[in-house]
Computed example of a mutant assay.
Amino acid sequence: MAEIIRLPQMLRDAEVRAGSFDDAAHTIEVIWTTGATVRRVSWLEGEFDEELIVSANAVRLDRLNSGAPFLDTHGQWSLDSVIGSVVRGTARIEGGQGLARVKLSAAPDAVDRVAKIKEGTVSNISVGYRIHSVERKERDGKIPLHRVIDWEPWEISAVPIPADPGAQVRSAKSDMFDCKVERALADDNDVRRIRLAMQQRMAGLGR
């Protein structure tokens, strides 16, 4: 059983590889995903665990490998937020991790921020991504598991504090995207339980 839901761009913690700054090339190496399972909460789905599948078949690397931006705290509305870019062709999957090389900007308006990254003062990284397809699995006595089997990283950002993986901030300006949800149901009891939960949720919204 499948359905289409609408999701915003998601965020995940990532990291700069320690000691990876190359002075001659002005680049750093980043680990933009490890695929770890994280707890999320959404007004539509409630509480669930999200597991990113990190494999060549699950991750769409075209945007990163086309020179995706390296941003200051996910800034999307000004060119001043662009403090680098992914070196074309360097985004890859190795050993269950997503890796890439980032070229840092030498522009005068980015000097202060880039200097903090070079010296290691700023080492927290966050990746923004779109989910295309998930596999939802109901688990007895536990919250549901969303296995993200098709997803697309769009940008990488330097952040002062790692992004909260459980936060899904929605606003009138947020872009929303279609996501296919495959529901892995064990038996008819799962169907009845989901229908009951949906009826209770809708009843609550109607108050």
Rank of each mutant, 00 (worst) to 15 (best):
E50Y: 00
G96A: 03
D80K: 13
D72V: 01
E50H: 00
N57S: 14
I53Q: 13
R63Q: 13
R92G: 02
L99D: 04
A68C: 05
S81A: 15
R92Y: 02
N57L: 11
W77D: 14
D72Y: 11
G46D: 11
A110R: 07
T37G: 01
L52I: 04
P69F: 11
D72K: 12
G95D: 15
S42P: 01
G75N: 14
E51I: 00
R60M: 11
S42Y: 13
H74G: 01
A36I: 06
G98F: 04
A91Y: 08
S55C: 07
T90Q: 07
G46C: 11
S66T: 10
A36N: 12
F48R: 03
V86Y: 06
R92H: 03
N65R: 04
L71T: 05
L104I: 03
L61W: 07
L71C: 01
R88S: 12
G84M: 08
T37H: 04
G98K: 01
L79E: 15
T37V: 12
D62V: 09
L71I: 01
S55F: 11
G96T: 01
D62R: 09
D62Q: 15
E47C: 03
G46I: 09
L64I: 10
A36D: 14
Q97I: 04
T90N: 06
A110L: 01
P108S: 05
V86S: 00
W43L: 14
L44P: 06
L52N: 05
L52Y: 06
V38E: 03
R60C: 11
G46W: 11
T73M: 12
I93G: 03
W43M: 13
G75L: 12
I53S: 09
R39Q: 11
G75H: 13
T34W: 13
S55E: 12
W43I: 14
P108Y: 04
S66E: 14
R63V: 15
R88V: 13
E51F: 06
A36W: 08
L61D: 02
G95R: 12
L79R: 14
A68R: 03
A91T: 05
E47K: 07
S85V: 05
S66F: 07
V86A: 01
V59M: 11
G67K: 02
A68P: 00
R92A: 09
R101L: 10
D109V: 01
T73F: 08
L64N: 04
T90F: 04
L61V: 05
A100W: 06
Q97G: 00
L52A: 03
P108A: 08
D49W: 00
S78N: 10
L99P: 00
G95T: 08
R88N: 11
G35P: 09
T90I: 03
G95I: 08
L44Y: 13
E51D: 10
N65W: 13
A107F: 02
L61Y: 02
G35Y: 14
G75P: 11
